[in-house]
């Protein structure tokens, strides 16, 4: 499910089935590493689209949460809200090092997509998606 009016209506009735929320968490620092952050954000979004296709009925994928200076205070506030709403599993999908508190974190690899041919890109992204899917399933099986 996505954060839009149609899906949120379904979510309200099916919260016992849609028990997992994914928060894409990315940096948008305007420093030397800005191009890297931009690349990471792109990969993060592609992975989210694929995840939504595969696991639509059990995941809510929130809009990407952006941060500067690896500040995670907003993330903490948001997870409290999500728990109150009724989500059992909260998964943060990110490239960042930061260790969030009482939530699961799936760390994506930094892949320099801009220097790759299209075939290679697809392959790398598909591999990354598979890894993330496996991690999500293992969180469900905990």
């Amino acid at each position: 499910m996505l954060y839009n009016q149609k899906d949120l209506k379904v979510l309200k009735d099916e919260i016992e089935f849609i028990d997992t929320v994914i928060i894409p968490f990315a940096a948008m620092d305007m420093d030397m590493k800005a191009p890297v952050h931009a690349g990471n954000l792109e990969l993060l979004q592609i992975v989210c689209v694929q995840l939504e296709k595969q696991f639509k009925g059990r995941l809510l994928i929130t809009p990407p949460m952006m941060t500067v200076g690896e500040d995670t205070s907003l993330l903490g506030m948001y997870t409290t809200q999500l728990r109150e709403y009724g989500f059992k599993n909260i998964i943060v999908l990110t490239h960042l090092q930061a260790e969030p508190g009482d939530m699961n974190k799936i760390r994506l690899n930094e892949i320099p997509l801009e220097n790759m041919s299209d075939d290679m890109k697809m392959e790398m992204i598909n591999d990354e998606v598979k890894t993330v899917m496996k991690s999500v399933i293992s969180i469900w099986n905990q």
Partner: peptide, 26 residues
Amino acid sequence: ICKHLGCTVTWAGDDANPNKFFCPCH
């Protein structure tokens, strides 16, 4: 597309049910 909540089903995705479509979500 699973008729429950719209996940993607796989053929023989569950080892215990080799000849069925399986939805990994529920």
